[in-house]
Design a protein around this nucleic acid. Structure first.
Length: 820
DNA sequence: ATAGGGTTAG
């Protein structure tokens, strides 16, 4: 053959043929066809070999070479061959080549136009598809046919466009073509116009399985699984069998509505009818079992598949990623790469979450770069949100903010992700600030996720009134029965000192899962109601609710706050032996706290020595805190040495250690710790307390001088101190870290932020009303003692929530019984 | 020759 073509063409031909060599099955027919083309025999357009020729272009490179060869042969403007090229480029994912080819065709027929429209639809570029269709209608005298409408209807992104297209269909009398009708039915039900869809469906003179599928999948895409199942019943009554398409869309609906029994019945049907070899069906099954949390089933389906595509890989990777097994997920991603399968943006969405779970900040940055290079942030918000979430979960909240700022479009989820990021990294006030900015964007409508992200932030700063405002919006939006929103509200009321309201809300929320129970147990724990927490745990078991790892953290913390040492220890064992839950660092931290607070410092120390995982700063920190409470300098030294090995950055621990030294008047120790912290470039977290008066949050820093009512506050404190002393109050100078005279020490104690806030509360609220204070660090021991006296003198309840727990002062005693 | 209904998502 090569002999027959002139040399200038020969180079193209041999290049093209050699690129085809790997797929040898089409090699000989491609050779023949090329020969026919170059000899001028292929003009009848009916040559089957032509299909082979185009089919053998398995990547854009092949297609371009074929294109180049057709140009050389002068056939590139052949109306038939050119449309073939448009279709092939689209199939290979390059619409812009399709368009360029399309534009170079001087005379276009219906086939040419149809090819271009469907090329856009195939790649999801719906706007351009509709635009191309308008161009078709306006610039040519040709009429669209029944091949034109299905893709065009698929491209409609709102009902108005859809109706216009429906009119054209009616004018041309194409409405009863099964393909066109199915597209119309699907279009109407997608936009929620079920009755219009149903009417069309009922009026059809002839229906095939595709017509039923259009009806069913319309419901499924509306997240209306129950109605979809109703249509299915009708379909089966008419004796129509489900096919692979019916099955695939129903499986998705079952996954979304967590309908395990229907899902399994459909799986049985799949096996019975031999549909378990179908790619789409298997992908849907993998996804469904993953959503049900049955990783084993999902994996078995995936392993048994004979052909897998990108969707299969994405589904199984997401399955492990979403079921807390990032290691396996990453292994699967690597396996996919080894097979040479190129990831798409959904793969990257999973990958971002995997790397965040593995706290791999190096690889996370390369994922970010990978997405930037491909410009995928522009294509879809989801990927941008995933990257914001990734950085936030890694603790790189500033990077998260930067990515968020740079997103080309932001939706409610983008905002929720950033708010959650701030809240979970301990920056509650930034979270609140971002929420405020979000409310100023009119086009952004808050949803479940918004409440779940902002409520913990309000809880954290004790902003009860702001939290109640959110509660109001939740009621307005009828979301109160949502378990997660409900649980955040329970937590908010409980941790802002309103246990009664927390209990009432608990009675309004579905309680089949452990989630709301955990919140309620934790709230009773911080209030020092250990016995009640244990009671709740028993109620939970009585109602058949399975406890999880969080339940045990809440329980053990509750025991720790109430000095229930034996109970706490038995929960630690019960968790492992009866529920098979492996203790996490949080559980270990609780145990050390439990033993340490109760004064069993040596026991706590040997417990740490025998841990099966490497203790982190929270575990050593618990021992250091206990050493402070029990004034044990030796244990404090040991704990802090080990602590600074794992975390030398947290100032709080330096402060604790210097507290211990100061307590014993060992001022050289205090100075040593201070200079160590200074040397490491650390500055003390300033202590602050806040109080909410008339919807306004006032924040007091230690020794605050700038408050407008500063003078009055100090005056009130001097007055109170005098009266406290007459009742037997003796200032405890061990809480003063400075080596100064006693007069000065007294002034320092009187300038503590919690005392300033309490004094402000007294002068700015009605007599005898309760005062609620929030403090970001732990409340000082002397202030604790002083507050007991203040509660007697002023006849007020004073509720102080610190970073650790609640102190409810009343008539000279505190709910914590001085045990904290 | 071109067309429907189907799988993965923060």
């Amino acid at each position: 053959m090569l002999g027959l073509v002139p040399t200038c063409r020969g180079r193209h031909v041999s290049k093209f043929l050699s690129s085809l060599r790997p797929c040898c099955h089409s090699f000989s027919s491609a050779t023949n066809t090329l020969q026919l083309l170059s000899d001028g025999f292929a003009n009848d357009n009916r040559n089957d070999n032509i299909d082979f020729l185009f089919h053998s272009c398995t990547n854009v490179h092949h297609a371009k070479q074929l294109h180049a060869y057709l140009v050389v042969l002068g056939k590139s403007q052949n109306i038939f061959l050119a449309a073939k090229l448009v279709n092939r480029y689209a199939y290979l994912g390059n619409v812009s080549f399709s368009r360029r080819t399309f534009d170079s065709i001087p005379r276009k027929d219906v086939y040419t136009w149809n090819s271009m429209v469907s090329a856009y639809v195939r790649s999801g570029r719906f706007c351009e598809a509709l635009d191309c269709f308008s161009q078709f209608s306006l610039t040519s005298d040709l009429h669209p046919d029944f091949y034109t409408f299905p893709p065009v209807l698929k491209a409609c992104e709102n009902l108005v466009d859809g109706k216009k297209i429906h009119c054209r269909v009616l004018k041309l009398g194409l409405e009863w073509d099964v393909f066109v009708a199915a597209s119309l039915i699907h279009m109407y039900s997608r936009f929620g116009f079920i009755y219009v869809a149903r009417k069309l469906f009922d009026d059809m003179p002839f229906r095939d399985t595709g017509s039923w599928n259009a009806m069913i999948s319309g419901f499924c895409q509306n997240a209306n699984a129950a109605d979809a199942l109703d249509v299915l019943v009708e379909m089966r009554m008419e004796g129509i069998k489900m096919d692979r398409v019916t099955v695939a869309s129903l499986l998705t609906a079952c996954a979304q509505s967590n309908d395990i029994s229907s899902g399994m019945l459909i799986h049985l049907y799949v096996i019975k009818h031999g549909l378990d070899f179908d790619l789409f069906v298997c992908n849907a099954l993998t996804n469904m079992y993953s959503k049900f949390g049955s990783l084993g089933h999902a994996r078995r389906i995936f392993d048994q598949m004979e052909v897998r595509d990108l969707v299969s890989w994405n589904s199984i990777i997401a399955a492990y990623e979403q079921n807390n097994d990032p290691i396996t997920a990453l292994e699967l991603f690597n396996a996919m790469q080894l097979l040479g399968i190129q990831p798409d943006f959904l793969t990257l969405v999973s990958l971002a979450s995997i790397l965040a779970q593995l706290s791999d900040s190096e690889k996370s940055k390369s994922v970010h770069g990978f997405i930037l290079r491909r410009d995928w942030f522009v294509e879809d918000v989801v990927i941008g949100n995933a990257v914001v979430d990734m950085y936030a979960k890694l603790g790189a909240i500033d990077s998260a903010r930067t990515v968020f700022e740079g997103l080309p479009t932001k939706d409610a989820v983008s905002w929720n992700t950033l708010i959650t990021g701030y809240a979970q990294n301990g920056h509650a006030s930034e979270a609140i600030e971002v929420y405020r900015m979000m409310q100023q964007c009119e086009e952004i409508i808050p949803n479940h996720g918004t409440w779940v992200s902002i409520l913990p932030a309000y809880t954290h700063v004790g902003a009860l009134q702001q939290g109640m405002k959110v509660h109001g919006r939740v009621i307005k939006n009828r979301l109160y029965s949502d378990v997660f929103v409900g649980t955040c509200l329970i937590d908010m009321y409980g941790k802002c000192g309103r246990l009664d309201d927390a209990l009432f809300l608990f009675s309004q929320v579905p309680r089949k899962s452990s989630v709301p129970w955990n919140a309620l147990i934790s709230c009773h724990g911080v209030h020092g109601h250990g016995e009640k927490a244990l009671q709740l745990f028993n109620d939970m078991l009585d109602e058949g609710v399975e406890p999880d790892h969080v339940t045990f953290v809440s329980l053990m913390a509750a025991c720790s706050h109430s000095g229930l040492v034996d109970e706490g220890q038995s929960f630690f064992h019960m968790m492992q032996e009866q529920y098979g839950i492996k203790p996490s660092l949080k559980h270990y931290g609780c145990m050390v706290d439990l033993l340490g607070r109760a004064g069993h410092l040596n026991k706590a120390y040997s417990f740490i020595e025998n841990m099966s995982v490497r203790p982190d700063s929270s575990v050593w920190g618990a021992l250091l805190g206990a050493s402070r409470i029990h004034g044990n300098v030796e244990m404090g030294k040991i704990a802090s040495e080990r602590l600074f090995e794992v975390d030398s950055e947290n100032v709080g621990y330096y402060v604790l250690l210097s507290n211990i030294y100061a307590n014993f008047g060992k001022w050289e120790g205090v100075e040593k710790v201070r200079s160590l912290a200074r040397h490491r470039g650390l500055t003390k977290t300033p202590g602050w307390s806040s109080i909410e008066v008339n919807n306004n949050v006032d924040v007091f820093y230690t020794a605050n001088q700038s408050h407008p009512r500063c003078e009055e506050i100090y005056e009130k404190l001097r007055d109170l101190t005098a009266r406290m002393k007459s009742l037997g109050y003796i200032p405890d100078f061990s809480f003063v870290l400075q080596d100064v005279e006693d007069d000065e020490k007294e002034h320092i104690l009187n300038s503590h932020s919690e005392r300033l806030a309490i004094a402000f509360g007294i002068i700015s609220t009605a007599p005898k009303t309760p005062i609620r204070i929030f403090k970001n660090l732990r409340v000082c021991g002397d202030c604790h003692n002083a507050t007991k006296f203040i509660s007697v003198i002023t006849e007020r309840e004073i509720i102080v929530r610190d970073s650790n727990r609640f102190h409810h002062f009343k008539d000279g005693t505190c709910s914590c019984g001085d045990y904290w």
